[in-house]
C-alpha cells in the first residue's frame, strides 16, 4: 500500500479511536438531525399538501436532506481537531517525522467519511422506522445519499481544516462554521420544494453544494424511477468540489509550513 494511504489510515484511526472513546459525541451530533427529522418533520407534515410540492410524504422528502445536512454540520468542525493538534504541538511533532504531509490532511477526512456513514445509516433508519418514510430507491438510493453526504462532508471538512490552518484561532473557526452552515441549509431545498420558494433562493441554491447533495440523494432515494443523469451530474459536481477543497487545504498547509 502506498505510504500516503497507510499514513492517512494511521491518522484516521487515531481520530476514530478518540471518537469511539467518547460515544456520547455520536449521540450529541445526532440530536440536531433527530430534532429536524422528528420535530420539524412532524410540525410541517402538511406542507406536502401545498399544490405543486411534488411529494406525498414529508418524511420521504426530508430524510435525504437531513442526512447530507448532518454531514455538512459535523464536517464543519473538522478544523477544530487540527487546531488542537497545532496548539498542543502535535502537528509540528508529526511534521518533523517522515510522515506523509497529505496524510495529515487526509486522515481527519477519512474519519469524517466513516462518521458520516454511521450517522447516515442511523438517520435513514430513523426516517424509516420512526418518521414513517418509505424509500422506493431502496439500497442503491441509500448508497447514493451516503456517497453524496461523504463527498460533501469531506469537501467541507477540507475547507474547515484550511481555515483552521490559516486563522489558527478556535473562536474564528467556530464563528465561521456557525454563521455559514444554517444559511447554507436554508438556501437549499432541504426543507422545502424550491419551485414554491422565492425564485432568488432557487437561483442561489443552484450554486449551493448542499443542494447538489440534496438533489442527488432525494432523486435516488425517493423517486420510483430515478433520473440517473441528474444524480450523477450532482455527484460529479461534489467530487470536483472535493478535489478543489482539498487543493485549497493543501495550499493552506504549505502556507502554514512556510510561515514556521
Amino acid at each position: 500500500m502506498p505510504i500516503v494511504l497507510q499514513h492517512s489510515w494511521f491518522m484516521a484511526s487515531r481520530w476514530l479511536r478518540a471518537l469511539l472513546r467518547q460515544p456520547a459525541w455520536i449521540v450529541v451530533t445526532l440530536v440536531q438531525p433527530v430534532i429536524w427529522l422528528l420535530l420539524f418533520g412532524a410540525l410541517f407534515k402538511s406542507i406536502v399538501n401545498l399544490p405543486g410540492f411534488g411529494a406525498d410524504n414529508y418524511a420521504d422528502f426530508l430524510t435525504p436532506g437531513i442526512v447530507v445536512m448532518t454531514a455538512l454540520f459535523s464536517a464543519g468542525w473538522s478544523g477544530m481537531g487540527i487546531l488542537q493538534d497545532y496548539e498542543r504541538g502535535i502537528l509540528d511533532r508529526f511534521l518533523v517525522t517522515p510522515s506523509s504531509r497529505i496524510a495529515l490532511l487526509a486522515g481527519p477526512l477519512v474519519q469524517q467519511a466513516i462518521v458520516t456513514i454511521v450517522q447516515s445509516l442511523i438517520i435513514i433508519g430513523l426516517g424509516l422506522a420512526v418518521a414513517g418514510a418509505s424509500f422506493p430507491g431502496g439500497v442503491p438510493g441509500a448508497l447514493v445519499v451516503i456517497v453524496a453526504a461523504i463527498l460533501l462532508g469531506m469537501a467541507i471538512g477540507a475547507l474547515s481544516n484550511a481555515l483552521a490552518l490559516v486563522v489558527r484561532k478556535e473562536e474564528t473557526v467556530i464563528a465561521t462554521v456557525t454563521s455559514l452552515t444554517l444559511p447554507l441549509s436554508f438556501l437549499s431545498g432541504t426543507f422545502m420544494a424550491l419551485n414554491l420558494a422565492p425564485s432568488w433562493i432557487a437561483d442561489v441554491a443552484k450554486f449551493n453544494p448542499l443542494q447538489w447533495a440534496v438533489v442527488a440523494g432525494r432523486e435516488a432515494l425517493t423517486s420510483p424511477d430515478p433520473d440517473w443523469g441528474v444524480v450523477l451530474s450532482r455527484l460529479g459536481l461534489l467530487a470536483l468540489l472535493l478535489i478543489a477543497c482539498f487543493a485549497v487545504a493543501t495550499r493552506a498547509f504549505r502556507a502554514y509550513q512556510r510561515a514556521a
Binding site: 499514513h7 494511521f10 487515531r14 479511536r17 478518540a18 472513546r21 498542543r88 504541538g89 502535535i90 508529526f94
Partner: peptide
C-alpha cells in the same frame, strides 16, 4: 510543548510515532 496526544495512551502515542 508536551506534544503528546492526551486522548491516546502512552503506548498508542509511541506506536503511531513508530509507524510513521
Amino acid at each position: 510543548k508536551n506534544a503528546v496526544d492526551g486522548e491516546a495512551t502512552g503506548r498508542e502515542n509511541l506506536l503511531l510515532q513508530g509507524r510513521l
